[in-house]
Design a protein around this nucleic acid. Sequence first.
DNA 1: TTGTTTACTAAACAGTGTTCATTATATTTG
DNA 2: CAAATATAATGAACACTGTTTAGTAAACAA
Lengths: 207, 207
Amino acid sequence: MGILERKEREKEEMRRKILDAARKLFLEQGFEKTSIRNIADAIEYSPATIYLYYKDKNELLFALHEEAFLKMMEELSKVVSVKDPFERLVEMGHQYIKYAVENPELYDLMFIMTAPMETLACRDEIWEDGMKSFCLLQTVVEQCITGGYFKKDLDVEIASLTIWSYMHGLVTIYLKNRMNMFGDDRQLERMQLSYKMFVEMLKISFK
Amino acid sequence: MGILERKEREKEEMRRKILDAARKLFLEQGFEKTSIRNIADAIEYSPATIYLYYKDKNELLFALHEEAFLKMMEELSKVVSVKDPFERLVEMGHQYIKYAVENPELYDLMFIMTAPMETLACRDEIWEDGMKSFCLLQTVVEQCITGGYFKKDLDVEIASLTIWSYMHGLVTIYLKNRMNMFGDDRQLERMQLSYKMFVEMLKISFK
DNA sequence: TTGTTTACTAAACAGTGTTCATTATATTTG
DNA sequence: CAAATATAATGAACACTGTTTAGTAAACAA
């Protein structure tokens, strides 16, 4: 009886259909201004139908959050092609900034919004996506130690947290419009200058 | 005719009454879960009345945002009592973390939420509160240069932005629950360890 | 063909920010 | 003091929001 399998396929198709519409609308007009009814309209179904495929709006956001991590990991993983470990770390930072600037809504969902964390909490799950990308950073930091760029007794976890904190702070100050206090339009330039300074700091003080 | 002045006084009193109730509710149950109707109930007035004193919810949030900056500046300014410039900077960082951890909702409003920025934008004003606290940081960084802790040719603005980015990133990762990916309950400890590492980085690489 | 399961939806619930015509009150004027 | 006016406050509505539920229509199994 292949009928059950077809049903399963259809169910999965519908979930994707919903997610596709949700992603499109969220990226077009932001999370705040996109409602379940908007999504329902887009796929020409009733709002109630969406609740047959996703428990609530948080679950929908969580699914997009997972997608966004997949996408970011793809971008960040490209740096393996960089031979030098320290340059690899530096390039990873550049890619991180690039991803955040080019996908502000997704970045928000991944690292700022509490919605996906709430879904995890009520599922009693850990934030695997976050952990995976943090591990990627840790790996590169370790490679910097192995490569002789960083000292052997460096606390990898804390060092990675320190690096991530800086990167995250920099891009969120920018994304949440706190950088237009400078008045001019040299915000991206300032980010790059600060990042350059931070890289120097790493080079000098982690050795 | 002192009658106009009395009216002015009464108007100001009402504005404060609303703001007091708003602050209380926002801090008690968060911004998301507090509605204009809740605030109206608390002060025993109709919801429409609030709109006679504040243009919209954003303006209300902006007023609280200003208050929060006043409060933070008070806390941070205490560090002038620390004689040594570098220790002063370090202490300021500690106070920043303390403020964020103890006032998560206010921190959110000050540095993450877009609502107060929107109010500024439609008033064609600059983010003065943000600028003032950034200047405080810049001042202390300058004092570290004068005191011989940091090199003379350090770009004060970029260095301050770099420091702020790190601090902001660290506390937001914590506040937005991204740190429970570590599984344990040593989150505050990890923050302190990372901050200690960052202070070392400053000491070494800004010299 | 009948009975049952599944997929879907209309309608409602309880809320949201915000606006506006209307009412009640306070102040000013004749 | 009474009438006219200005001000303050509100009830009710508008157009939304996320979510639930009872009921319908279609697909499947017997």
